[in-house]
Amino acid sequence: MNTLLLIEQILNGLQFGVMLFLMAAGLTLIFGVMGLINLAHGSLYMIGAFAAAAVAGWTGNFFLALIASLVAAAIVGALVELTIIRRLYARDHLEQVLATFALILIFSEATRWIFGSFPLFLNVPEVLKGSITLPGGIQYSLYRLTIIGIGLAVAVGLFLLISKTRVGMRIRAGENDREMIAALGVDISVLYTMVFALGAALAGLSGALVGAIQSVEVGMGEPVLILAFVVIVIGGIGSIKGAFAGAILVGLTDTLGRTMLPLVFGSFMEASAATTVGSALASMLIYILMAGVLLFKPTGLFGAT
């Protein structure tokens, strides 16, 4: 394997990782502040992608489409929080899982009803088409590089929001002691709706960004949701830092595993068998990584013990 291919795969892994981070950040915030496990997060990812595809179809403008994905997911998120989710905070995890599972069924079928079963396509805008040459002579897709940039910018923004602003202070206080911050006069229910909408918007944005690389279809959110779960189990639930580290780790492991493992097995096995064993093992690699982390740190890399 040559170095150029390796670097390209590392960049692909980073791109996958930052997308996972956008999903995992919302999940981990919502769990950290409200104590809620939200399976419907994947639906918000799907809603963002569909909103972007629809707006891009009407206006032909990709940047309006991105804004639409943020707004649509945030609005749907806020509405769901106000009507249903807030009844679940005091319930146990089993009931949260089942209620949000029910929401997945409703959202998926409603989307199928509105948009039909056929996948939609979201085109990469002209400006970002093609590839650019990185230092060292590597050709890399400009769009994927932009995704990495957006993901990192969001990560920094989120970090600043939580560590430097008043809202961030309230979010951190909410994670530590809900009753106390309510007693200090913070309107906790408004804070909850805001956090939920923020997480939803991040999921929607990530759906729209990925939608331009893959197809936009019903059920696209759940595989990503489960990967985001793996990310926050590895990183430690409730920790944004953990979500970032976990996301990059999972993104790199998965992408590199898929290209490297068949090659590694190919060095001592017959070619077709090596591809089979290599790709089968690669599909399990991140779960093995998760099992490994659980063996040594059951609360994740950055989790509170």
Binding site: I226, Y287, L294
Partner: peptide, 22 residues
């Protein structure tokens, strides 16, 4: 079972998904 609560839910879900992809 080394974990509990919400970790347990996610971990069992992830192992199920691992076999699916396998």
């Amino acid at each position: 079972l080394r974990t509990s609560g919400v970790y347990f839910i996610m971990v069992t879900l992830a192992f199920g998904q691992m076999l699916y992809y396998f």
